[in-house]
Design a protein around this nucleic acid. Structure first.
Lengths: 211, 211, 211, 211
DNA sequence: GATGAATGAGCCTTCATTCAT
DNA sequence: AATGAATGAAGGCTCATTCAT
């Protein structure tokens, strides 16, 4: 009911000077927090605080938490996809290009693994938002798939199920990111991890079956 | 690592008046709900309702939501682990035994992939609870790792990083569970999926490098 | 995110001794506030405060603000209806019984006029809730209508549109409750108001047309 | 009570570039929305959207929501009052003039009934704004009251409490606008409704008491 | 004259948790 | 063993209002 107003306050503050666009900071903060803690655990307040703006400002740019999440995730996947795509366009052998992708991904904190995020946010996103996320995810895989399809066409590698190969490749790279209970990785250096992973992958798909 | 339990009497319970004990129904309901919706999204009320008891009853048996979650997850992982262990003890070749594990897992709804669950619940569980979950997860892998170590010792397979192999194996099996955006899997039948996956895995680790 | 809990707090308080049922106090507070300020302006917090309980307690008994509002209003209308019904069952002439109703209503603060409440809450209530309110409102009128129908059947009064008469009667009584800008009513005493109103109503419906 | 306006130039505006001034569209949108949904439920954003302008523009013309509301309502009441006044100046019998007013109002969507609006907005308007609204409301009634006073002076009708008669008249007309739960009105046509209402009103006030 | 950006305050609702019985 | 009642703390979202341009 709160009948009387008092104090003075809402409204845009006198502001000092703009730096990075507010929207950008929000997206940035959201990405960081969502990535670390998942959808549910992160509150809009958390994001606002991290971005140094008010909750209402977040809502000025994003209609809902689900929307912000979707947008954030899709942006991230797009970025990953582009990075991969670029690495895969190098003028070297497929093996070397994949190796480069593996190295890059083992170094990044971003995650290929969206399954967890999808499951967690499933019931909170609209059907359309889920669809958009699925497509963005697929985009990352397709990008690797293309490389296989092209190599097959150019007869650099034998014919295989390219999509399955792409997913397997990424699944194996992800293994390299696994932290054991004591916090250590399987391999000492990123390079060694990438090398081993590539070796397994390549033999798995392109060597003649072990007799 | 003697599986020492505490409290509640060992051996067969005296009577079975309540066909299913309240605690059991709660655990069951919790498992089902947590698995589907993750930690945060499931409320104690949800679980109580699903189990047909009151919220307070849940608290009678489990000190907190985190505790219930941990217990649930660990129980599930133990079950998976035992199932795997059993399949791996068959009196057949390693290849065949792994194939059986692959088939079994492709059929089950339970998930090997705990990363998502871990990330989501991370900040809500106590350090000890996290540790327990990590150990239980590790248990699942160890069980596969053992099989490799033994085969190596018996010189059935060349020497490889058994732990890395175990994780890779499971990662590949998980690929077989991936649903494409249109809802379909990569392979038509579970058997074909398992066969392909095993082929890739086996060649990857045990064939001589493709020249 | 708010990781650590601190302080100690939720849960049922140690309590001293129960007095009136919590639910009752909430209903009472809600009736009083809604009646004075309408649906939108009253917050659940206001009601909780007025009832001396916490907001969460309100929700323990009522699923939503709309539900509480509906329940409150319907209860009030039922009470009014019963009061009217009782007065109309007296063993006197119809004229005298209506006069009694007029007096009673001019004295009460409760309102016959739900139109305002309906319009205000329209978009916030479910279709079903609106329907329930409409029925309860109708109940109040029907109760008066019955009296007319019966009187017609017993040939105490000529045949008229009983429903229209009931609504007109109540509309006129409401006029007696009108406060002029300076705060005063049209008539000095409740009795005089009732007498004048009844005279107008009765002549309006049951006198032979002024030639 | 010279209708003294302030600021903005009197007389015909210089040009009509903007076919409808922004202020006008806002007032129009506000009237429509407030009338349908009441004060609280309508947001400035809603009004701005409906008017096709920005929220800030609304504030450019109106200092606050309460002010906009008051202005809107008063304008509406003035319009109603003028319409009534005009109909009441016709050169026919009082009975016929009132009948015309009844018909006109039964056809319009605008509401005589401001009680709901007043109650709802009461705590949000300043004392002065409330006063203005009350006066405007009173204006509508006064206009009818005048007609009675004049008729009394000219001995066309017996002496009655003119103010009470005016309110009663309007209350009865409002009954004709009542929608039953099934959505229908009491009478089939507007004309019949008006005729019945007038009959009741006229007999009520001007017939000799039913013996 | 008009508007984009921003915000403080509040509101409805949910939830894990506790206590007395 | 089980539960009904109660609550503090958030959390998502809306909104009137303000300021700089």
């Amino acid at each position: 009911m709160t009948t009387q107003r008092f104090g003075r306050s809402p409204g845009r503050p006198k502001s000092a000077e703009k730096s990075v666009s507010t929207k950008e900071s929000v997206l940035h903060a959201a990405a960081s927090l969502f990535l670390q803690n998942g959808f549910q655990k992160v509150s809009i307040d958390d994001i606002a605080k991290e971005a140094g703006v008010t909750k209402a400002s977040v809502y000025y740019y994003f209609g809902s938490k689900a929307e912000l999440f979707t947008e954030t995730m899709i942006a991230m996947m797009k970025r990953i996809r582009e990075q991969i795509a670029q690495l895969l366009q190098a003028d070297t052998s497929l093996y070397e290009r994949l190796l480069a992708v593996a190295v890059a991904h083992l170094r990044s904190t971003a995650t290929f693994d969206l399954e967890g995020f999808m499951r967690e946010s499933r019931t909170s996103l609209s059907e359309e938002q889920m669809e958009q996320m699925r497509l963005a995810e697929e985009g990352m895989y397709e990008c690797v798939e293309e490389a296989f399809l092209q190599a097959i066409q150019e007869e650099d590698i034998p014919e295989v199920n390219a999509r399955f190969a792409a997913h397997s490749f990424i699944a194996l790279v992800r293994v390299g990111n696994y932290r054991q209970p004591d916090g250590s990785f399987f391999f000492e250096t990123t390079e060694e991890a990438a090398a081993q992973i590539m070796s397994v992958f390549w033999n798995g798909f392109f060597s003649s079956p072990a007799s």
